[in-house]
Design a protein around this nucleic acid. Structure first.
Lengths: 347, 347
DNA sequence: ATGAAAGCGCTAACAT
DNA sequence: ATGTTAGCGCTTTCAT
């Protein structure tokens, strides 16, 4: 029988898992050599490399990235904050972020900021505590306290889906005002003279509304902003609120001949309601959505909309963060990915 | 001038951030007391507690959870794996998981398994390396190698969206076959005698198809499984594939009087195509979807569908993991959340 | 190319 | 209620 080592003062806290040390012992090398075999294989002699790899395979060893992150101050974790996961709008970006980061060996942590500032602050603290190598924000950070903490944390930040001259750090977005103005010009060119706005009550949608109205004024479409009826529905937008929205809009202003919706879902609702009422689209009513979701091209009639390159935004954001983590200096910190007005049957 | 401490052998590697030690020094207590003040405040005397809290506020200290996780073997990280973020189907579950976990002080890591096994294995390794306190899987894990690694890791696993007698660990799901059988009974009760299936080619959708056909045979609706036309479209399903799917279905079998779709998006496409062709729904054609997405209640006509409680699944899964992490024993490890056939205008 | 030593920032275990 | 000590598993720094 083996006596317990008298020099061992107390029971070990070890989790029971296989560690780098176990692998090293099995391979007959020092832990640091095993570490190098995994991280920088070309700094290790071929025979030792092979032995380490075999030991890894035999034990099923999976490196503990918590420990690695602590030691190297690189967590290989990136946090993304979205207002809500429920909306399909940001999904394309989240999807491409996830893939692009996974390809570079990073993992995505997802957080929902919701709508209250207190939740936003709590979320930010939870995120910063994990020491991610980067944070991707969708839209503007509301709380000034949050902004300050982020800045103080020193973690690279990419804001997205918007353009501002004063980003916290890096920025990948587009101008909502310009996108809406382009839609206004499009509808004007199609001969529409009585446009209406149907939008969610979120900040960016309202900014688009203003952009639309400003351009309408400039075009001489209307003399006064008040001439453009604008109905706001609560976010997130649904097909149902699109239907009831059109109904309410027409009840007040039956002369409306075009509707610019703040989302494709809303626009789909308008399409459905128009069909139910026997209103011909686009003859009697032009409809334009926003987002170019998967279904937009296949509605009846096909939905005109504004395409935002969510995939591109995700890829640029990932690149920004990976570059920064690798110590490369990022040249231009602001990227305008633009937008495209897609003309289809509905206008 | 202060001479550098001769006993200091080398420059520190410290990241420059504020640490618990700094806070403790400022508060005039030992590090462990500061730790307790933050984690178990009622084990600390009120005056010291106040001093620690003030030091935290003054410095803007945010605990390093990487270090905490390493020391305590609890990362407070939970990983969720979805086939793809793009589909709206799992979003409800992911959303509720995120919230429920955030409330319990956990953070969600999101991974996309995609469709290839190699990606699945790589993802699993990335996840296990982070030593999460739990892993939530949507659907079945394909790779047997992956299953083995998960088991070996000892991390609590919750499989979801499905029922199997042999889960890896815990399970929150429902029977796809039974759900489809219920739809078959519903259509039969409505007098439909020529049903068709329009489905994605994913594993669970095909299981529903089989459940539907089996029940149809049992009901005497058909004599032979081949009598039920079944069209498969590639996942993810879209409105467009719903439209073209109905077109192809009718081209081959004009006598079809009901379509059971594997997703609401597909069903919406069927609705749109039917409207475009002047086919009356539900008079000439009954349509049933799956998922009860946000828009289902508001289509024209309102879409009959199968409601799955994604929020409930997320909450149960979160509970399972948090309970396990807190050392509570989980009683019944398999939860059947069931489903509900929602009858609306389209059938 | 390889290794020894010393942490990274925190908490569990053992005192008092 | 508070402190001391010794790690958690890895990587950095420095030396060979």
């Amino acid at each position: 029988m083996t006596a317990p080592d008298a020099t061992a003062p107390r029971r070990s806290r070890r989790g029971g898992g296989i560690t780098l040390g176990d692998v090293a012992r099995l391979a007959g090398v020092s832990p640091i050599t095993a570490s190098r075999a995994l991280n920088t294989p070309d700094q290790v002699a071929p025979d030792k490399l092979a032995r380490v790899r075999e030991a890894v395979a035999r034990t099923g060893y999976v490196p503990n990235r918590l420990a690695g992150g602590l030691a190297s101050a690189r967590s290989r974790l990136v946090a993304a904050v979205v207002p809500t996961i429920a909306g399909p709008v940001f999904m394309e970006m989240v999807q491409s972020l996830t893939s692009a980061l996974a390809d570079a060996g990073y993992q995505l942590m997802l957080g929902q900021s919701g709508y209250t500032e207190s939740r936003e602050d709590a979320l930010l603290e939870a995120i910063i505590g994990r020491r991610p190598d980067g944070i991707v924000l969708t839209g503007i950070l509301h709380s000034p306290e949050g902004r300050r903490r982020l800045l103080a944390s020193g973690i690279p930040v990419v804001e997205t889906w918007d353009l501002t001259p004063t980003p916290i750090d890096m920025l990948v977005g587009f101008s909502h005002a310009e996108a809406a103005a382009a839609v206004a010009r499009h509808l004007h060119a199609k001969g529409r003279r009585r446009p209406a706005l149907l939008s969610a009550d979120d900040e960016r949608a309202l900014r688009r509304n203003r952009g639309f109205v400003d351009e309408a004024l400039r075009l001489g479409l209307v003399r006064d902003a008040a001439e453009i009826p604008a109905l706001r529905v609560p976010a997130p937008t649904t097909l149902g609120s699109g239907r009831s929205g059109l109904a309410r809009l027409l009840a007040e202003r039956p002369e409306v001949d075009a509707v610019f919706c703040s989302s494709d879902m809303l626009a789909l609702g308008v399409l459905v309601e128009a069909a139910a009422r026997g209103i011909a689209v686009p003859q009697q009513l032009a409809v334009v959505g926003f987002g170019d979701l998967g279904f937009a091209a296949d509605t009846q009639p096909a939905l005109s909309t504004v395409r935002i390159d969510g995939t591109g935004i995700g890829q640029r954001a990932a690149r920004f963060i990976v570059d920064r983590a690798d110590g490369r200096t990022v040249g231009e910190k602001i990227v305008d990915v633009g937008f495209r007005v897609i003309e289809r049957g509905s206008s």
